[in-house]
Amino acid sequence: MAIRVQSEPFDLSAELADFGAGAGAIVTFSGIVRDDTGAMVALELEHYPGMTESALTDIADRAAERWNLTDCLVIHRHGRLAVGEAIMMVATAARHRAEAFQAAEYLMDYLKSRAPFWKREIGRDGAGSWVEAKGSDEDALTRW
């Protein structure tokens, strides 16, 4: 079980090399910075040091308990990230795939609206605009 908040890139395959030994199922998700408007060059992520780590740990602990995870990894980056870079990843290990899939979805749903990160889109002209939270992200929590 590990939580990491960092500005530097991570290597997905290296992270998975020692992950979840003995599990029957491993699910991984990674989020990539995308450009929906055709005018964005980067994202800047601000976070709340201290609270970020404790919020992610809390979410991961609850997922691990609910789905009997044998391992769990969350990495989330902050700072400036170019379009195409990996912004975060979660990995879950369990005995069976249903638990691993559900735990990964739960982690993502909670991480999006309960971990203190804020995204700002940086356009070609250098100007930034804060990304607004979607109501659908908050609604997603009700299914759990």
Binding site: Y48, L111, S113, P116, F117, E132, A133
Partner: peptide
């Protein structure tokens, strides 16, 4: 709002609090 790094609300008491943070709805992931 977070009081001592725990998500809170407007009615949360501040007795013994050390740190209060204000921020927009979170947009991680």
């Amino acid at each position: 709002v977070a009081v001592d790094q725990q998500l809170s609300d407007l009615d949360t008491p501040l007795a013994d609090a050390r740190e209060v943070a204000f921020f927009p709805p979170m947009t991680g992931g």
